[in-house]
């Protein structure tokens, strides 16, 4: 119990610090960075529920991130419902989709699971591209998101969106943290370490896998909602396969074995992207070399590396 209170305290502290920053520095780029970080970190952490905690390597998790952006933006544009209602409806849409997609995917194992999730994502991508009347096809949803006001606060304003994104990130992380610390979280790790033994010990493997699949999809869609507010719309690139790659790289670089690994990895990747893009148009060359140095030098994510150096054993990890 004490652990929960400690985590919540850390979370509140983090929000307080972030809320104070704009009063110290006028940097709008920092605020943009935090908003994007919030979106991608939620998405990457949700993927790590599958990868790091359950041992399910999904290549198609971007399906739910992208579906989150599209369902939220469409609900805001096409219906008159309020932003919080659209937010909740987005989570429901994603949960229902995840049940259907997960029921098919979790039957498969290892690399086949990875590729069938990717196929699912690309199928959804094809549908979005083809269904021009609803989604705008490859042009994406144009015209912006209207009525970005919650309880009198306009999320169209950058500072407000920044605070909103920070709060959503902290709450999202706290809930996921709580999930992996429950007995459900223990079941996940048992399945990861030895599926047959977990099953032998009375864990209904498919049910646990499906549950975590749906949960992670819901959190990915929360990241999608934040991204949708940031770009004020939704674009097919947000559901294309490189977006799944971004989340995978974030968790591999940050550390699959540490709860905050994906968040750290997201920050590394976004920083690299923003800094390198400013310096050179040979962005790929520079980023590629940095990634190689990273991957071959540490051979694991940054947080996992630090934890091991400090003598600890990472909480998660992939066998």
């Amino acid at each position: 119990m004490a652990r929960i209170f400690r985590d919540i305290a850390i979370g509140i502290l983090a929000i307080a610090v972030l809320a104070a920053v704009p009063h110290l520095t006028p940097s709008k780029a920092f605020q943009d960075f935090v908003i994007r970080c919030s979106s991608m970190a939620l998405f990457a952490t949700s993927l790590n529920l599958l990868v790091g905690y359950t041992g399910l390597s999904s290549f198609g998790h971007g399906l739910f991130f992208g579906l989150g952006t599209y369902s939220f933006a469409l609900l805001m544009q096409r219906t008159g419902i309020s932003l919080p209602m659209a937010f909740i409806a987005t989570l429901l849409i994603n949960a229902v989709t995840a049940v259907a997609v997960g029921a098919i995917c979790i039957r498969l194992r290892l690399i086949y699971f990875a590729f069938v999730t990717l196929a699912m994502q690309m199928l959804m991508h094809s549908v979005i591209i083809s269904w021009v009347g609803l989604t705008g096809g490859d042009q994406g949803l144009q015209g912006g998101i209207p009525r970005r006001v919650v309880a009198g606060i306009d999320l169209g304003d950058q500072y407000n969106l920044y605070i909103f994104a920070a709060v959503v990130l902290v709450i999202g992380l706290l809930i996921m943290r709580h999930i992996v610390n429950t007995s459900f979280g223990t079941s996940l790790r048992m399945i990861r370490d030895n599926e047959a033994r977990a099953s032998f010990l009375g864990i209904v493997v498919w049910r646990v896998k499906l549950t975590v699949f749906v949960l992670s999809a819901v959190f990915a869609s929360v990241g999608g909602v934040v991204m949708s507010l940031f770009v004020s719309g939704a674009y097919p690139e947000l559901i294309n396969w490189p977006i799944s790659g971004d989340a995978i790289f974030a968790i591999v670089m940050g550390g699959v074995g540490s709860f905050l690994g994906p968040t750290v990895g997201t920050m590394i990747l976004l920083l690299l992207n923003d800094v390198v893009t400013r310096q050179t148009e040979y962005y790929g060359l520079a980023l590629g070399i940095i990634i190689l140095a990273f991957a071959l030098g540490l051979r694991r994510g940054l947080l996992d590396f630090i934890t091991e150096r400090l003598g600890g054993r990472p909480a998660g990890g992939i066998s």
Binding site: D32, G140, V231, Y235, E237, L238, D274
Partner: peptide, 12 residues
Amino acid sequence: SQPQEAARVARE
């Protein structure tokens, strides 16, 4: 060629 990067870069 990514719209979300286009939005970010424009703001930056």
